[in-house]
Amino acid sequence: MYGETHTLLGFFEKENLPLDIAIHPGEGLGPNRRISTVRMRSDNMRMFIKMLKENRIYYP
């Protein structure tokens, strides 16, 4: 999970992102990689990244 989100860290730290963001999980999700795009809230990802950092799971 960290590996999949690592490349997104910088992106989600940008200011003025739209609330609704589409991301592409590295290996896809589900059988036959059925889901290649997941729409989610940018503030959710920002909070997730903040928590990764606070818990020292993030490294630059």
Binding site: M1, E4, P25, E27, L29, G30, V38, R39, M40, R41, D43, N44, M45, M47, F48, M51, L52, N55
Partner: peptide, 21 residues
Amino acid sequence: VSSAMYFCLKYLKPDEIKTWC
């Protein structure tokens, strides 16, 4: 594990993300 985490990242609200993390 990956699917379950994306599920939560997608459907939880920001305040729920904090406690979940």
